[in-house]
Design a protein around this nucleic acid. Structure first.
Lengths: 113, 113
DNA sequence: CTTGTTACATCATTAGTCTATGTAAACCTT
DNA sequence: AAGGTTTACATAGACTAATGATGTAACAAG
């Protein structure tokens, strides 16, 4: 799917929270997961800015560990605030999602339902 | 619902396209429709920038008509390009929507499906 | 004639993603 | 050991979209 960038705004961060909530993971792996999910154009830089934001907002715990396959990794896990934020994210998503479905199903002005 | 601004990016324009597709309408009325739908914090300025964008992208036809209740209104209708754009919008929405549901239902790393 | 509603318009700010690029660690091949 | 590939984190600058604040103007009601 091309050019979904704008529609991903405000959504990607939630996706990253969700992915981290599954168990400790690091930036590069998160990027792979997002691509595997279907968001094929997401790049490392984008995920990096998101994880930085999560750090700054104190939603994650961080642990640096060496890797056998390259440079050391920064592993993230959700803390309690992060889990709360994830919950809020899904509530927002459900809200918008339901409204969009409502709009899509709505009939033109004059017509009866 | 508070603070869904970021999540509305790339979505609102599609909503406006959809609303216009129901029949000719104008900026102020579109704002009311969006608020009625549930996006209560959408302001006129936002809708204005969207309709301006639609004009610039040549997705709408415009007709100025006097109003009995205030200043003249700029009525919009979708042209063919606009309808095509609307179709593409819903395809994008369906794509992201399905991926998000997939993500939400996904089990943690180790678990079987 | 002042106030309220309708309605379009503009500017500056904020936020999020992307492009492009850099740096460096570990591995494999020659 | 020199060079290439993959892994992995990091940063700067550009672009787009929504918002807040504000302005302008038409019309109705009192």
């Amino acid at each position: 799917m091309e050019n979904i960038t704008e529609m991903l705004k405000g959504v990607l961060e939630g996706c990253v929270l969700e992915i981290i909530s599954r168990g400790e993971t690091y930036g590069y792996e998160i990027t792979q997961q997002l691509r595997k999910l279907g968001f094929t154009d997401v790049v490392e830089g984008t995920v990096y800015t998101i994880t930085m934001r999560l750090e700054k907002k104190n939603l994650v715990n961080i642990e640096k560990k060496p890797s056998t396959m390259g440079p050391p990794r920064k592993f993230y896990t959700l803390n309690e605030a992060g889990q709360e934020q994830l919950k809020i994210f899904w509530e927002k998503w459900e809200f918008i999602s339901s409204k969009m479905n409502e709009l899509k199903k709505m009939k033109p002005k004059g017509e009866a339902i």
